[in-house]
Each structure stands twice: as C-alpha cells, then as structure tokens.
Amino acid sequence: METRMRTIGLIGGMSWESTVEYYRLINRGVRDRLGPLHSARLLLDSLDFSVIAACQREGDWEGAGTRLAESARRLEAGGADCILIGANTMHRVADAVEAATSLPLLHIVDATGDAIRAQGLDTVLLLGTAFTMEQAFFRDRMQRDHGVRCLVPETAGRAELHRLIYEELCAGQFRPQAREYLLELIAGGVGAGAQGAILGCTELGLLLGDADAGVPVFDTAALHAAAAVEFALG
C-alpha cells in the first residue's frame, strides 16, 4: 500500500551546494520515519544563482522576488503542496513568494525559532550573509514571532563572513581555516551574551560539520528540511 505523502516544492540553487544538502536531509528524514526504501515526494526548481546574486548586489529585491515567485508558480503547477525557499537571504522576498501561489510557505525563521525556544533560549548570535545579518527581515520576524533576540558580529566580522560565503562556500570550498574563523565568531558572540548561534546561511552547516562550538548551534538548513518532512508526513 502506497504511503500518503504530500509533495514538497523546493526553490533551490542558491547555492546548489546547500540544495544538495536539503535533498539529502529531506530524503533521510522520510526514510528514518517510514523505512529504508522510502524517499520524499519532492519537486525542485533550481535557479541560476549568478542571476539572483546580481540582484542582491544591485539591491534589486523586487526583481529577485519576481524570479522566486515565478519559481513558486512552476512548483505549484507541477503538483507541489508547499513551498520552501532553500536559502536564508532569499527569505528577504518571502512575501512575494507567498503571494504568488495558494500554497503554504514553510518559513526558515519559524523552523529555527521553534527549535531555539524549545531549548529555552532567548538570545542568540545570527551568522549569515551581510544581507541576513544587517537587514531586518530575519531578526524582526525572530523577535516578533518567537521572542528571540539576534546579536550579530562586529562590522569586520560580518564583512569577512560574507566574503567567505560567496567566494568559498558557494564555490564548494570548505577550508579548515574558515571553520576556525566561524568558531571564533561564535565564541565572540557568546562573550557578548549569546546563548547559542544560528547558522543563518544554508552553507554554514556544511562548513561547521560536527565541530563543537561549546553552545547550541541551530543549522537553519537542517531545521528547515525537518519542517518539510513534518509537513510531508503530517
């Protein structure tokens, strides 16, 4: 008898390095819940990140939102039952994506906020691209809907992390030196009062791996993927 399962619609390619991880985590989650031969019903619309990154650099968020909204409509037409944006920064245009279809958008901040509150924390360090750390879309939703305050590194730390993400992680380079730098940023955040750290870029979990940061670390890609599995099987 075929297991009843909803179809996940994933807007990916931003970057494809983390999209691969989404695919792995979602399928592993379904397998672990249902048994070794089960896999997820999933539609992927993989965008050319160079186009999206150009919109980011130019501040053309409306153009980026249009492209992601078109992607969501393609997924809906293909039979998806929900939409995931497989990137933290592109939740900057979540409203445009949500308005484009009748499908629920599983928001990465909500998946992360629920996990943070489940551990009883209310102040965390937010790490990600400069857009995610400096603009309000992530921090404001986290504070408003989950009661969690996000700290961010100092200016130089934000700039270097942004460079690492775009020049190394999105290009598939995961150097031990970059991992050590990430751990240094987390230690600095703890010194400033953070009780844990959000890996608010979907490539950062690939960089950190199983390294011990000394505090709870919330991998947004893994938490988002788990929320997708729960939706698909719930």
Rank of each mutant, 00 (worst) to 15 (best):
V97M: 11
V97P: 01
A99L: 01
A99N: 05
A100V: 10
T101H: 14
T101A: 15
S102Q: 15
L105A: 08
L105T: 08
L106Q: 05
I108T: 04
V109D: 06
T112K: 00
G113N: 04
D114L: 12
D114R: 15
D114S: 14
R117D: 14
T123G: 04
L125A: 04
L125G: 01
L125E: 13
L126E: 08
G128C: 06
G128D: 01
G128K: 00
T129I: 12
T129P: 04
F131R: 12
M133L: 07
E134L: 12
E134Q: 15
Q135I: 02
F138I: 08
D140G: 13
R141I: 02
M142W: 02
G147W: 07
G147F: 12
L151T: 08
L151D: 01
P153F: 01
P153M: 07
P153N: 04
R158D: 05
R158L: 07
R158M: 12
R158W: 10
E160S: 13
R163V: 10
R163M: 06
I165D: 00
I165Y: 00
A171G: 11
G172V: 09
G172H: 08
Q173R: 15
P176A: 11
A178M: 09
E180C: 09
E180W: 03
E184F: 02
E184G: 02
L185H: 03
I186K: 09
A187R: 08
G189F: 00
V190D: 05
G191C: 07
A194I: 03
A194C: 03
A194D: 00
Q195L: 02
Q195F: 06
Q195K: 06
G196N: 05
I198T: 06
L199Q: 04
C201P: 10
C201L: 10
L206G: 07
L208T: 07
G209A: 11
A213E: 02
G214M: 07
L223E: 07
H224N: 11
